[in-house]
Design a protein around this nucleic acid. Structure first.
Length: 410
RNA sequence: GCGAUCGUAGCUCAGUUGGUUAGAGCGCCGGUUUGUGGUACCGGAGGUCGCGGGUUCGAACCCCGUCGAUCGCCCCA
């Protein structure tokens, strides 16, 4: 019989463990705490949806739909897709579950998302995000609230240093279209001098030329038409209210006129918190206003704004998070005292002390394991001439507490 | 989809111009001191050097292919 080959993990998935898992948990716990401070309500969403939920909202614009989604047919022949983002599913639920009644609705969630991409630093096929949305709020103060929450989150994670909030406006639908037309005209005139990629973008997604990394493109980006010259009075007022609100709320920001969104449903505010500490993946948290999304899913026109952030990237910035040391390690120095050790362990845990019991190896090795674990206290049991005795090494405060607990059942 | 770099014990890595039975640390298992002290010391198990071909008297090392990983490009909802 040939040896069984262990199946390997799927490309782009991760088995997160130890200090990395602690950092991951720290990000999620901090998010949960901050989200409650801002009174965002928790939602749990399905991990997959009908493919249309995503394809309709994303539109035909890019090869995102055809190439980057994990889609498959179920047994009934229906095309389903593992969620590549939270927003579309939440928007669908807003319509199908009658959440209009709660508008303006502030919701937050987190969990795994799936995109069929080549993995690289901070990018995985199954990755995880935290997400916050305000649906049914047209006022710029909603944008401010959302950004203030993001800002506080990054500060409480201790990673605000070196992270900057970049802000832009895409204007309303008409502003955006006029700007886009001007950009196409401008870049078309110099098409031959652009990078090959940007010549492609000119046809498929001209706004993206603005954040091209190619120096040949960057030379022209500086003098490209600015959205500011195409903004309607309303759009100007809206953006001014957002920036003014941020200043009032004490949120630092900087204008980035090249910051764009690829999808058509985005309007007005677009933002990214960016760092230079994550290689090619500089965006730590991003979002914007998506007033056009609900209609693309067959709902009533509904203003909305939201953001999402990759937990893996935040966890990388958070850095090593040690696993907590045990309060008490209980050592059964020989097998005759294992039951005593188990009773003590149980009592200590019941009283809220993180405890672990060691019962294998020689007496010396058992104790050595306890010492290496660096607990606040070591409680060791041994039998001598048939009599069970225990010894305790602990800090003075722990000594008293443990002695009291252990003596209760002696 | 494209490019660069890398694949040696469970983990982190050595391995000198290609030259005997491929090493270390950690971890694991066993042993030594029967002790108001112990995180030490000694020993052992564990590797067809990612996989498949080729060159050579001889390959972990050189060449080709393949699979995988990492980083970057494209894309980024």
């Amino acid at each position: 019989m040939s040896k069984i080959k262990t199946p390997q993990a799927i490309r782009g998935t991760q088995d997160i463990f130890g200090a990395d898992a602690e950092a991951f948990a720290f990000v999620v716990e901090t998010f949960e705490r901050v989200r409650k401070l801002y009174r965002f309500r928790r939602v749990e969403m399905p991990v997959f949806e009908k493919t249309e939920v995503f394809s309709r909202s994303i539109g035909e614009t890019t090869d995102v739909v055809s190439k980057e989604m994990y889609s498959f047919e179920d047994r009934g022949g229906e095309s389903l897709t593992l969620r590549p983002e939270f927003t579309a599913g939440i928007a669908r639920a807003y319509i199908t579950d009658g959440w209009q009644q709660y508008a303006p609705l502030k919701v937050a969630t987190h969990g795994p998302l799936f995109r069929y991409e080549r993995p690289q630093k901070g990018r995985y096929r199954q990755f995880h995000q935290i997400d916050a949305e305000i649906i049914g709020a047209a006022e710029p103060q909603a944008d401010v609230e959302l950004l203030a929450m993001a800002d506080q989150l990054l500060k409480e994670l201790g990673i605000a240093e070196g992270v900057t909030l970049q802000l832009n406006t895409l204007g309303d639908g008409d502003s955006r279209e006029a700007w886009r037309a001007a950009l196409v005209e401008y870049f078309r005139a110099v098409k031959g001098e652009l990078s090959e990629d940007s010549q492609e973008r000119l046809e498929k997604n001209p706004l993206r030329i603005l954040d091209s990394k190619d120096p040949r493109d960057r030379a022209f980006v500086a003098d490209a038409p600015k959205i500011d010259d195409f903004l309607s009075a309303e759009a100007q007022d809206f953006f001014a209210a957002v920036t003014g609100g941020l200043d009032a709320a004490g949120v630092a920001w900087s204008r980035n006129p090249s910051l764009v969104r690829g999808l058509d449903y985005y309007r007005h505010t677009a933002f990214e918190f960016v760092t230079d500490r994550l290689g090619a993946q500089g965006t730590v948290l991003g979002g914007g206003r998506y007033d056009g999304l609900m209609e693309s899913l067959g709902g009533n026109p509904t203003p909305a704004v939201g953001w999402a952030a990759g937990i893996e990237r935040l966890a990388m910035l958070v850095g090593e998070r040690g696993e907590a040391k045990a309060d008490v390690i209980i050592v059964a120095e020989d097998d005759a005292v294992i039951d005593h050790a188990l009773r003590a362990t149980s009592a200590l845990r019941t009283n809220g002390h993180a405890s672990e019991v060691i019962v294998t190896g020689s007496a010396r090795k058992r104790f050595d394991k306890a010492v290496k674990a660096e607990p606040r206290a070591i409680l060791s049991y041994a039998s001598r001439d048939g009599i069970v005795e225990f010894k305790l090494k602990a800090t003075p405060d722990m000594y008293e507490v443990i002695t009291r607990i252990v003596n209760e059942f002696r």
